[in-house]
């Protein structure tokens, strides 16, 4: 459901998407393997929705975002934006696509050209797409700066003169310059102070409302994702393990990995926090070069059984728009395991 309660139209559909980075070794550059960053991913985002994409570092979420924007070519699979596969567009069509889809980056220091003024940075997309020039472009830049909470006179300044939060606003103004429909926000607040995070999140929400934007919000902070998302997808070593509407996911997480992630969120109430049961999973995230067989989570899963080691669990629907990829859940009729109390039982 879109935020206004009406069923939305699909804006973006990702079908069976793969992105492998080949590894070459030796003087002959022999192909010795692949980093399987995105390894068969499906999801859809409806018009006006925010899909939160969460996962540990190295789970492939950033790569997925870049492939969706056609900043990286896909190895296999389709990315349908308004029904058209972005992988198959011509150069001219890609140029047009850049006006529809934009990106906001994690690191507000690396994402702004240090040798350009803020006015030039925000105005560059206007020049590229010949949206406005001269006085009109200047005015548009000032409008955009005001829109993200900056002052018009900031246009003459250089990025190094701003704080992290202000720079992130500059990056947002640049993304908005072309009037996009869809924005990939790649961990847009994880490099900011907590007090600034809230400001930027609120700005993103206000902008979404004002311009009916659709977001793919990539993050590893589950409280931030809970705040901003309408739906949430959980990624683990290149695969999506669970997707559901926000409340369904947070209240009834099915996949053991989702449960473990959610149990790691601290609760800002000492009394409740003291009783919070954490699900500790051991070990590190496996290498995407050589992912585990069967279910990728079986090496760390407290309830893994024989089938998990050999058979890759497909995403299956349990309840309304709630899908998960777990053999245990499947064999227990869609019930979530209770991992907090000894041997796994139905929660």
């Amino acid at each position: 459901m879109s935020p206004d309660g009406k069923p939305g139209v699909d804006l973006l559909e990702v079908r069976d998407l793969y992105k492998y980075f080949p590894i070459h070794a030796g003087i002959l550059s022999r192909h010795v393997g692949d980093v399987r960053a995105v390894d068969g991913v499906d999801f859809t985002i409806r018009q006006g929705e925010t899909l939160g994409l969460v996962g540990e570092s190295g789970s492939g979420k950033t790569t997925a975002g870049r492939v969706v924007l056609r900043l990286l070519p896909a190895t296999k699979g389709e990315v349908l934006f308004e029904g058209r596969d972005v992988q198959k567009l011509s150069r001219q069509e890609v140029r047009k696509l850049r006006k529809e889809m934009q990106i906001i980056f994690q690191d507000p220091y690396a994402s702004l050209n240090p040798r350009m003024t803020v006015g030039d940075i925000v105005g560059e997309p206007l020049a590229i797409h010949r949206i406005a020039k001269g006085k009109a472009a200047e005015q548009r830049v000032q409008e955009l700066l005001r829109l993200v909470g900056l002052q018009p006179y900031h246009a003459n300044r250089y990025p190094h003169e701003f704080s992290g939060g202000q720079r992130q606003r500059i990056g947002i103004a640049r993304a908005l310059a072309v009037g996009p429909k869809f924005i990939v926000a790649d961990e847009p607040v994880s490099a900011l102070d907590v007090s600034i995070q809230a400001q930027v999140i609120n700005l993103l929400q206000d902008l979404q409302e004002q311009f009916s934007l659709t977001y793919l919000f990539i993050a590893h902070d589950l409280s931030v994702v809970r705040h901003i998302s309408t739906r949430v997808a959980v990624m683990y070593v290149g695969k999506i393990v669970e997707i559901a509407d926000r409340d369904a996911l947070y209240q009834n997480p099915l996949h053991p990995y989702t449960q473990a992630l959610l149990s790691a969120i601290p609760i800002p109430d000492p009394a409740v926090e003291g009783r919070r049961k954490r699900i500790i999973i051991s070990g590190d995230i496996p290498s995407p070069v050589n992912p585990p067989s069967g279910c990728r989570f079986h090496t760390r899963c407290p309830i893994a059984f024989d089938r998990c080691k050999v058979e890759v669990p497909p995403l299956k629907a349990y309840g309304v728009r709630h899908v998960a990829a777990c053999h245990w859940v499947e064999e227990h009729n869609g019930n979530a395991p209770d991992l907090t109390s000894g041997p796994a039982v139905v929660a």
Binding site: L71, V94, R95, I103, F105, Q106, L112, E124, P125, I128
Partner: peptide, 16 residues
């Protein structure tokens, strides 16, 4: 660097 990716995402060509 991200600002180069940002320029690409804005539709900038190789020359620019």
């Amino acid at each position: 660097r991200d600002f180069i990716v940002a320029a690409t995402a804005s539709g900038a060509g190789d020359g620019r």
